[in-house]
Amino acid sequence: MNNTRGIVLAFALAVSLSALGARAALAQEQEVPPKQHWSFAGPFGVYDPAQLQRGFQIYKEVCSNCHSIKLLAFRNLADPGGPGFTEAQAATIAAGYQITDGPNDQGEMFQRPGKLADHFPPPFPNDQAARAALGGKLPPDMSVLAKARSVERGFPWFIFDAFTQYQEDGPDYIHAILNGYVDAPPAGATLPPGGQYNTYFPGHAIGMPKPLSDGQVKYTDGTPMTVDQYGRDVAAFLMWAAEPTLDARKRLGFQVFIYLIVLAGLLYFTKRSVWYDVKHHPELLEPRPPSEYSRG
């Protein structure tokens, strides 16, 4: 017994030492985005409509100049669990956009004001046009961006995340990127032409110039107009755009949990009662048809 235990220990040691060595070799300059406080985190998290409206304002005034958000429709702005615009407000926002429709009876495409059912029109007609206008760089579509970005958590943090329900690494990353621009890149950092230095971007050379500065977007509700706040608001908006049913999901989840806990409890006591004889008077057991198992 002691021999095998020794072999097992030596074996485990060898494996973990070689793995730890690799871990140390891999621990590169990847900066971990600081965690932010999000209203939609945790089991009872919900989006803050005021924050989503501010985030939408930033998207509309700044991001949408380059980034499309093709999967989002104007009607979504009035959906429950969203930014809380009324349908009339959403229709007004839609009418402010020109949508290419057609072909009409003459066989021509035409422009018309947007309607609730329309999706947000992209800033460029196609990827090639975007590249041509932006020095060869293609800004990613923002529809599911908040779910398409993540932070490498590593062992053992990824295990804790399953218990703490940490799912907000996407928004954390977006906020960090918007706040990760530095004026002077650290000594030794080399940037390709047109690249900007960003602390949190993998490899640090980001194609997007610093998009936001303090006071750039005018808030009317007294919220601080800082890049830090802008970053949080637009990241929250993008999380909603990527996961518009989060509120409904967590609400239903809680109901399902109550149901399952009660069900499991009832079944546990049923099981105890059914098995009572087997556990306590096994000598009485004889096979009998199920109809005879009823205990009155």
Binding site: Q165, K271, V274, P290
Partner: peptide
């Protein structure tokens, strides 16, 4: 009833874990 009630109880416990992922950490 012995195996069925035991299976049913543990299935409910299993579904609690499943629901945790579906509703709270689906990705």
């Amino acid at each position: 009833p012995y195996a069925t009630v035991k299976d049913a109880f543990f299935l409910a416990v299993f579904c609690l874990f499943y629901a945790w992922f579906v509703f709270y950490i689906p990705n």
